[in-house]
């Protein structure tokens, strides 16, 4: 696969990878704990978008079987192409996990701020060095 093809056909993946690395970079490079949590969130969002991207079927519609008795077989038969609903369902769970993680991380950050008087990692480490 040459580069233009890889860029045009898989652009969503490149975007995801870029987003993921942005998130990871923030987690590594920032000292502020809240920013770290934000970076972690971006990182998770990239993974969630990956699943959502994967679910898209070209030309597919939302996976809702149209109509009841009124519409008849002509409208809602088996010839309709649907997107894959399963990854979306999985991501509902993953989003819940993400929310729980964020909530816990923020709670810990509050606790750390209470104990150290700072939300900056480097200052907290320096405090530990000074106080044993």
């Amino acid at each position: 696969m040459n580069l233009p093809e890889a860029l045009s056909g898989l652009w969503a993946y490149w975007l995801l990878i870029a987003l993921m690395m942005v998130g990871l970079y923030i987690v590594i490079a920032r000292d502020n704990l809240i920013k770290k949590v934000m970076g972690l969130n971006i990182f998770q969002a990239a993974a969630i978008l990956f699943y959502v991207t994967m679910a898209k079927v070209e030309g597919g519609t939302a996976p809702i079987v149209p109509g009841g008795a009124d519409h008849g077989a002509g409208h809602g038969g088996h010839d309709v192409l649907y997107s894959n609903p399963l990854p979306h369902v999985l991501m509902l769970t993953a989003i819940v996990v993400g929310v729980a993680t964020t909530a816990l991380a923020l709670a810990l950050a509050v606790r750390i701020h209470g104990d150290y008087g700072t939300s900056e990692e480097d200052e907290a480490v320096a405090y530990d060095m000074g106080h044993g």
Binding site: K36, L108, D115, Y116, A124, D128
Partner: peptide, 11 residues
């Protein structure tokens, strides 16, 4: 430092 360790562990 337990809280700090928990935060690292979480990340």
């Amino acid at each position: 430092r337990a809280v700090m360790s928990a935060f690292y562990y979480l990340v």
